[in-house]
Amino acid sequence: MAITIHLYYTGSGGSARAFAREMTRTGVVERIRKEAGNLQYEYFLPVDDPETVLLIDSWTGQEAIDAHHASPMMAEIAALREKYDLHMRVERYRSAEDAPGDAQFIRR
């Protein structure tokens, strides 16, 4: 069962976008993508909210998420969140394969 987390980072003065750029530029994003169980780690920019960045973070299961949260990398991420004074909203989803009744509505 894949678990996908949507993290909405919101700041002011372009800080959320600066955070995402620094996460990418410093290699943190690439290191996360190489962690066991990571399926996706990508930032997106909402067209109607220039102060928010959406992170789509997908993992093979809760064990992979727990290992990521226990990694030393989380201290780096937390420091950057503080540096840019970001606030977060979080949504959590399970993969569509877990809801077989929905399969008829998904075009592959």
Rank of each mutant, 00 (worst) to 15 (best):
E63P: 03
E82S: 14
Q40E: 13
G101F: 13
E42F: 10
L45V: 12
E82P: 01
T26C: 04
E82V: 08
R81C: 14
A103H: 07
D49K: 08
G37F: 05
D85F: 08
Q62K: 12
R89M: 15
G37H: 00
R92E: 14
L86Q: 08
P100C: 02
R92L: 15
L86S: 06
M73N: 08
L55K: 06
D66L: 06
G101M: 10
D98G: 14
A75W: 04
Y84C: 05
H87M: 10
D57A: 07
Y41S: 01
A70W: 15
K34H: 09
E30F: 01
A75D: 15
T52R: 15
A67I: 09
D66K: 12
E30I: 00
S58M: 09
W59E: 04
L54Y: 10
H68P: 00
K83T: 11
L80N: 00
A67H: 14
E82L: 07
A96M: 10
T60M: 11
D102N: 14
T52W: 01
R33W: 04
K34M: 02
E63D: 11
A103I: 00
E91S: 14
E97V: 14
S58A: 15
G37P: 05
R94G: 15
L39Q: 06
E82I: 03
Y41N: 01
R89K: 13
T52G: 03
P50H: 08
L39V: 03
L54P: 02
A67V: 10
A36Q: 15
R89G: 15
V47G: 01
D85M: 05
M88P: 02
R81Y: 01
F44M: 13
D66S: 11
R89L: 13
K83H: 07
A79H: 09
F44P: 05
A70C: 09
A99K: 11
H68F: 14
P100Q: 07
E76W: 04
H87Y: 06
R92V: 14
E82K: 12
A78C: 03
V28K: 00
A99M: 15
A70R: 15
L45S: 14
E82D: 07
Y84S: 06
A78L: 07
E42P: 03
M74P: 01
R25I: 10
H69S: 11
A64W: 13
Q62P: 06
A36S: 13
T52V: 09
I65Y: 03
A79N: 12
Q40P: 00
K83D: 03
S58I: 01
P46D: 04
L86M: 06
E42L: 08
A36E: 09
P100T: 02
V53H: 03
V28C: 03
I77D: 03
E76Y: 11
M88L: 13
W59P: 04
I77Y: 02
S95P: 04
L86R: 08
P72G: 15
M88G: 08
L45E: 13
A103C: 03
G27H: 01
K83E: 08
R94E: 09
H69Y: 12
P100S: 05
E51T: 09
R89D: 15
L80G: 03
H87E: 11
R31L: 03
E51M: 05
A96N: 02
R81N: 14
R33E: 07
E51D: 14
K34S: 07
M73H: 09
D57Y: 04
D49L: 05
D102P: 00
Y41M: 06
A75S: 04
V28R: 00
E76N: 05
N38M: 05
A64I: 09
W59R: 04
D66F: 06
